[in-house]
Amino acid sequence: MQMLASLFLPTYPDPPGPKIASNAVAVAKQLGATLDAAVINVDIPDVSNALSSFLLDLPAKIREVETASRNRGKALLENVAAEAARCKVTLTTQELKAQPAFIGEAAAREGRYFDLCMVGWARDTESIRMTAEEVVFSSGRPALILPGDEDVGALDNVVIAWDGSRVAARAVADAKPFLERASAISIVSVTDEKVLPGKD
Rank of each mutant, 00 (worst) to 15 (best):
K88R: 14
R86Q: 12
A60R: 11
R70W: 07
V80P: 01
A60H: 10
A82V: 05
P59F: 01
F54Y: 15
G73A: 03
T93W: 05
N71E: 13
Q99V: 02
V80E: 00
K97N: 07
L51Y: 15
A60E: 11
A84H: 05
V47P: 00
Q99S: 09
L58H: 05
R86G: 04
K88P: 01
R72W: 02
V65K: 00
A101I: 09
V80A: 01
A68H: 02
N79H: 06
T92Q: 07
G73F: 14
E64N: 12
L51P: 06
A60Y: 10
T67S: 14
R72E: 01
D46K: 05
R70T: 10
A81P: 02
V65F: 00
E64C: 06
T93C: 03
K88E: 15
A81G: 04
S48R: 13
E66V: 13
L96R: 10
N49Y: 09
R70Q: 13
P45R: 15
E66P: 04
K74H: 08
I62E: 14
V80Y: 01
L55Y: 15
E83D: 07
D46Q: 05
D46Y: 03
P100G: 05
L91Q: 11
A50Y: 02
L77M: 08
L91P: 09
R72I: 00
S53V: 08
P45H: 09
N79V: 14
V80S: 01
D43G: 08
E78H: 06
I44G: 10
S69K: 04
A85Y: 10
G73Y: 15
E66L: 11
A85K: 15
T90G: 14
L91K: 07
A82K: 00
V89R: 07
A82P: 01
L51F: 15
T92R: 12
K88Q: 15
V65N: 00
L55K: 09
P45C: 11
K97T: 12
E64W: 07
E78P: 02
K97W: 00
E83I: 00
R86S: 12
T93F: 02
C87G: 05
S69C: 06
S69L: 04
K74V: 11
N79M: 03
R63L: 06
Q94N: 10
E78V: 00
I44S: 11
E66W: 12
A50E: 13
Q99I: 03
A82W: 03
A75S: 10
R63V: 02
L91N: 11
L55S: 13
F54K: 11
C87I: 04
S52E: 15
A101K: 12
V80R: 01
K74Q: 11
L51C: 01
I44N: 11
L56D: 05
R72Y: 02
Q94M: 15
R70C: 04
K61I: 14
K97L: 06
V65A: 03
E78W: 02
A98K: 07
A84T: 11
T90F: 13
K88W: 03
E83N: 08
A85W: 08
V47N: 12
A84Q: 03
L56A: 14
A101G: 06
E95Q: 09
A81H: 07
E83G: 02
Q99G: 08
L55C: 09
A75P: 02
A98T: 02
K97F: 02
N49R: 09
S69N: 05
S48C: 10
A85D: 14
T93G: 00
E66D: 06
F54C: 08
A68M: 05
I62H: 14
S52T: 15
L91C: 13
E95G: 04
V47R: 10
